[in-house]
Nucleic acid binder design. Structure first.
Length: 524
DNA sequence: AAAAAAC
């Protein structure tokens, strides 16, 4: 019995020792070299506490009022380094508590002194307006016992107002690149005193072609700044950027990309293009759906699908980048509050946007990039609860499905939907014809020619009422409702929990039910 | 091939 105990050290062998020696040369140590020295007797590793991280009383109080006691791994690891003034390179995705890992120590650092007119003291760059808003909310929540100011600098909203706030001086500036550069060029902004920079979602910024903008913005800042850089992946290109922007960063990795949480049940239905909407409705009705995001690849399809769902009696709202900002915000809030059950959206919401506790994610289209599949379905199955991710594919999308299965290393179960013709994978190229959603060319002047082809006048065609626009169809999102102020005390109880990973809430058990022994990263 | 972001 006791003889058996210490066999592991013998197995470790010399290769490992060699690696360890090499690791001491650099700053970064691969996980495999970290020796676990926890005494075997101890069952539960002690959970770190927010009170041990060096944050001041007003911030700790706000954290407690939000219902948190234990930091997530990225928070526990990053916060001390940020407070030390170190640059940080964080590899983490949404749902890991990434946002608070920089907002909390920033509040701490900034709380010492005051802002001056037009010279923001810190800057956070976000790829989308929704994310910028989410970060701003974070500052409001955690900074409520401090006297710090922030400004949100995003497109689609009045510039005069933003300028006004800047003139009064802000401690934290949260921006999307376009508006920031615009305002800078108009002279409404000086970044020379900005000593703390956060680049969030760097991989996404790269995808979206923002890197030249980011480089431009970074060149406006003092080289003596502190920089925090976050990305969900660490592709070579991202690594190169990090090397460019960061000085001797502390690197922190908390979640592997390309893994599907074990708490997500996935399924794939192969159907013809024209059956997709019907198949989706069946899935929506038959699954025990509490709330769901439905992803489409194209903005136009988001609109078409959303209208169709509403017409069929579903509580749905649309979200994509062509919608007015006010609608984007109010739809998102309506969905978070539970007022809307279904959010139909483009990849605007695939990454970053943190909506906890979704019961279902549907891919109306398979994403073009396999990684996007992981990001999309990662909106569900959080915090140990079972999530469901169902995808629709046309017969011509076998390569996409295979790319996803290869990336995730998991086959996606084929599902059948009763009453829908099941299709099979096809080797034929996709028939070139009208694109989905595009109505067959309407003859505008001529008399209604040949009465509709053989297609049995599906719902899509009925929608085409030529002259009259639909008489103010029940707006998907109540644009007038100021739902934003409504985050009161009952928020946590809605089953959404805002962006709160459930295991962090006080009343819940703090030790996640560990799925596999090797998997030290939590199940969200 | 599409999405995001500036007026």
């Amino acid at each position: 019995m006791s003889a058996k105990k210490n066999t592991t050290s013998a197995r470790a062998g010399s290769a490992k020792a060699g690696q360890r020696a090499a690791a001491t040369a650099g700053d970064i140590m691969p996980i495999s070299d970290i020796e676990i020295v926890t005494p075997p007797e101890t069952e539960d590793a002690p959970q770190p506490l927010f009170s041990e991280l060096g944050l001041s009383a007003p911030i700790q109080q706000a954290i407690e009022e939000m219902g948190y006691r234990h930091p997530t791994p990225i928070q526990a690891q990053a916060i001390p380094y940020v407070l030390m003034g170190r640059d940080v390179l964080g590899v983490a995705q949404t749902g890991t508590g990434k946002t608070a890992s920089f907002t909390l120590p920033m509040l701490e650092i900034l709380s010492g002194s005051r802002a001056r007119a037009r010279m923001p003291r810190s800057l956070i760059l976000e790829p989308t307006r929704e994310l910028a808003l989410q970060v701003a909310e974070n500052f409001v929540n955690y900074g409520k016992h401090l006297k710090l100011t922030h400004a949100l600098l995003i497109g689609g909203e009045s510039m005069a107002e933003q300028k006004e706030v800047l003139n009064r001086g802000v401690d934290v500036l949260i921006a999307t690149p376009g508006r920031l550069i615009d305002l800078f060029e108009r002279g409404g902004l000086l970044l020379t005193q900005t000593k703390l920079l956060v680049i969030d979602e760097a991989d996404r910024m790269l995808d979206m072609g923002f890197i030249p903008d980011i480089e431009k913005i970074v060149s406006m800042l003092s080289p003596l700044r502190q920089t925090l850089f976050f990305s969900a992946t660490m592709a070579p290109e991202i690594r190169r950027l990090a090397d460019m922007f960061l000085h001797n960063p502390k690197e922190i990795t908390v979640s592997r990309p390309s893994s599907v949480a074990s708490t997500i049940e996935t399924g794939l239905v192969i159907v013809e293009e024209d059956d997709k909407r019907r198949a989706l409705r069946k899935l929506l009705r038959e699954s025990d759906m509490q709330n769901a995001i439905v992803f489409c690849n194209r903005k136009r399809d988001v609109d078409v699908l959303c209208k169709s769902l509403i017409k069929h009696g579903f509580s749905a709202g649309a979200l994509h980048g062509d919608l007015p900002q006010s609608v984007r915000f109010s739809t998102l809030e309506a969905f978070k509050s539970g007022e809307l059950k279904i959010l139909v959206c483009s990849d605007i919401a695939a990454r970053g946007i943190d909506i906890g506790g979704l019961s279902h994610v549907f891919n109306f289209d398979l994403p073009f990039h396999a990684e996007d599949y992981v990001h999309r379905i990662g909106r569900t199955g959080r915090a140990g609860r079972t999530g469901h991710a169902y995808s629709l594919a046309t017969p011509y999308e076998q390569p996409l499905a295979e790319a996803i299965e290869k990336l995730t290393g998991k086959p996606i179960t084929r599902l059948e939907v009763k009453g829908i013709d099941q299709a099979e994978w096809s080797d034929e190229p996709r028939p070139r014809g009208r694109k989905r959603g595009a109505k067959p060319a309407e003859q505008r002047t001529a008399a209604p020619a040949a009465p509709a082809p053989r297609k049995p006048a599906a719902e899509s065609r009925k929608a085409a009422t030529p002259a009259a626009p639909p008489p103010a169809r029940r707006a998907a999102a109540p644009a007038a409702t100021p739902a934003r102020e409504d985050h009161g005390s009952d928020r946590v109880q809605t089953g959404f929990g805002g962006d709160i990973p459930a295991f962090m809430l006080l009343p819940r058990r703090t030790t996640p039910v560990v799925p596999a022994p090797e998997d030290e990263n939590r199940s969200d």
